[in-house]
Design a protein around this nucleic acid. Structure first.
Lengths: 356, 356
DNA sequence: TCGGTTTACGAAATCGGTTTCGTTTCGAGT
DNA sequence: ACTCGAAACGAAACCGATTTCGTAAACCGA
């Protein structure tokens, strides 16, 4: 006989009563805790429709909620997904967070988030913090510089990389079809009359994504026999402007088209253009990656390579849950499925795209 | 004698060994699990410098990490802070998330995030999800419509409201000094020559924040004897543009100044202005809340009321930890400290602010 | 040297679920 | 009727830490 046997017989007492435990529910429903547990996790071994109903009724009436900590401990599963984002200021990241949140919730998982702010040290710290917290899996939008740590983490739990790859291997990656998107932007600009193209990048951003886009860009140029180059803006804002000014002057009168390699570079580009004064070279056209909400306002609308963040998020969670299920189901590390590389097609938003 | 007595004697075997438990560490260090626990939580009752060092050495060597689920269960504390954000697309929210993440990490806490997308149903669901997950406290940037649920939640664990208040009482709130910021924007516009002022709002956003700003605005107008009004854009984009167009025409030739009540309205405003064509009424000036990164690019720089997101985040976490400490320390609900209302002063970014 | 108070630590209970394993019951097949 | 397998369920171990309580040793002033 339990100490607080009749703790449950309250109808609607408003007072703060001690929390119900599973054994209280069990007693109330006249079954064993094991059966209630089966009910809670609707285990394959069915139970009589009658006991099921009885348990449901008791839970409904008492408003019982199982304590997560207890079930986590015993089952060593938390239904938590860790997310490490490099730069939350980037709308890509916030859109992704929203998508991940929704997809995770759909599978009964919650998100634990950490933000590295593009600082590898913080990223590493977040990595251990989330793992220590017991997340079932990890989504990492890495800022780079932690390849070994990430590989190590992937050895301990399921990891899916988001957008940015890691030199070391063995982890799933979900990203956009950057090469096609680059081609699409080149298409758009040439169709709009540009004769020379520049891809603008930042020195500080040395991510594999940037490199992939730059590579695709030069490939595309040579494939089409177009003139152009990759221009790396220096980090200090002013230098960047100088470099940009120089570039624009260098192509003066030649129908230049600029592609910003990502949203932040685009932002710096607009700043720089504003600084250079209202007199832009005639025929200068602009396109960019990342569909910031103001892209269709600036310059009368900027043609944009938009990533399908919602689908990316969905697939990320899908990959992760798949691996999580494997880990928690199979005995050892047997049946390791090969690392996937998934490209989610983005699309080009065609807009006016002219600076004038 | 434990089953796996010598599991610990490996030096650097690469094989995946079973995880260490606290009792393994204890055995290895020649102390009891209780002492190791004391070490881990550096409890007031000191221990010999020698045993401390011995435990530290063993932990260091084995790379032992305590299982969070177990300590959560026993201590009924998770070091998790739940965060519910209404609209992650708003840079205010993402900046806040970054700030919260940093402040929480500084106190050894992690963040569990949920995003309501301004949907009260989702918000309510997030509320229960996070509470069920066992968060120690909750930060809510509510979208409204859940006053009772939030009040109920606040009865069960510490809750701090972020930016948006809740009709019901009894919870801490951290927000900006909206009234002063409104006055600051009015200052800026009148100083720039505006004679009539409009505050632009959206019908769909009926948050207390919007209302507070609108109220402050009309107060300010009457205090200064200025002409002007609050203009509510309808929800459907097109109607909004029409309404705006109408407003601008109505004041034609009268040196109009527009204030966007928040960043999203400002975005719609820029869109609408772009749609209305390049010929804006001469002397139209614009100011806005929320310092989006492109504010200083558009229209040659838009005067902005910027909130101090970092400080807000800091104070939010501070408030929350304070209450969490009280809850976990004191016996009952004694010593309930009164709900605070904290206003963090923002500042006005003075920029060119002219549309032409 | 002796009571009295800390201090350092260990033994064992405990948190609240899940999981394993075994038992009973029920229905089908012959 | 009897066997057999599956279905429904209960008893008890278990997850891995924290916490309570107790004890032995150390310290301390008189």
């Amino acid at each position: 006989m339990p100490k607080m046997a009749q703790a449950a017989d309250n109808g609607e007492t408003g007072c703060a009563m001690a929390q119900m435990r599973i054994k209280d529910i069990a007693a109330e429903a006249g079954v064993s805790p094991a059966t209630v547990s089966r009910y809670l996790n609707n285990r394959p071994g069915q139970m009589t429709e009658e006991t099921r109903a009885r348990i449901a009724a008791v839970i409904e009436r008492t408003g019982y909620r199982p304590r997560a900590a207890a079930r986590n401990l015993r089952s060593s599963r938390t239904n938590l997904i860790g997310v490490i984002l490099a730069d939350i200021a980037n709308p890509f990241s916030s859109a992704m967070l929203e998508g991940l949140s929704a997809s995770a919730a759909a599978r009964g998982c919650s998100l634990m988030t950490a933000i590295s702010g593009n600082d590898p040290a913080k990223e590493a710290e977040s990595l251990t913090r989330l793992i220590d917290a017991g997340v079932d899996g990890l989504v990492v939008n890495t800022c780079g510089g932690n390849d070994k740590a990430i590989a190590a983490a992937a050895g301990r739990l399921p990891v899916v990389l988001l957008d940015r790859d890691v030199a070391d291997a063995g982890v799933d990656l979900v990203t956009s079809n950057n090469r096609e998107l680059v081609a699409g932007l080149v298409d758009a600009l040439t169709a709009a009359g540009s004769e020379r193209l520049c891809l603008l990048t930042e020195a500080s951003d040395d991510s594999p994504v940037r490199r992939e886009r730059a590579e695709a860009f030069t490939d595309e140029l040579s494939r089409r026999g177009l003139a152009g180059e990759v221009v790396t803006l220096a980090d200090g804002g002013a230098t960047g402007v100088g470099r940009l000014d120089e570039t624009i002057r260098g192509y003066a009168g030649k129908k230049l088209g600029l592609i910003a390699v990502n949203g932040l570079v685009f932002l710096r580009l607009t700043e720089a253009l504003a600084q250079l004064g209202p007199s832009l070279p005639a025929g200068l056209k602009i396109a960019t990656f990342d569909d910031y909400p103001w892209n269709h306002v600036l310059f009368g609308g900027v043609t944009t390579a938009a990533q399908d963040t919602l689908t990316i998020a969905e697939r990320v969670v899908e990959c992760l849950s798949e691996r999580i299920d494997i880990v928690t189901t199979t005995v050892g590390d047997a049946a390791k499925l090969a690392p996937k590389r998934i490209e989610i097609p983005g699309h080009i938003e065609h807009r006016a795209s002219t600076s004038r």
